[in-house]
């Protein structure tokens, strides 16, 4: 039961990945693409945590911690490049 619900959740995340990639491909400006990358990172944090439950290993949470703390830096560098104050 729980595993079925979690599988459906994983499917939803995969669907949202596809939608985000469509936005990335048609996004008119660079800022659209950066926000797509941001949302993609946050979604993959959720996905990693669900995977950690499904493989039943607590150690995969460390990967999610690194993701959560590093998702920030790339976006800031890109934004600073955009406003020409790097």
């Amino acid at each position: 039961m729980i595993n079925t619900l979690l599988s459906v959740s994983l499917l939803f995340i995969a669907l949202s990945f596809i939608l985000i990639i469509i936005r990335f491909l048609i996004g008119t400006t660079v800022a659209d693409r950066i926000i797509a990358l941001d949302v993609l990172t946050v979604s993959s944090i959720g996905m990693l945590v669900i995977l950690a439950r499904m493989f039943d290993r607590v150690i995969y949470l460390d990967v999610a911690v690194v993701y959560g703390i590093l998702s920030f830096i790339g976006v800031i560098v890109m934004a600073k490049y955009m406003e020409k104050s790097l």
């Binding site: 290993r57 150690i59 995969y60």
Partner: peptide, 9 residues
């Protein structure tokens, strides 16, 4: 098989 880290699991 699982990751090569030996813990409680």
């Amino acid at each position: 098989k699982s990751a090569p880290i030996i813990d409680a699991a």
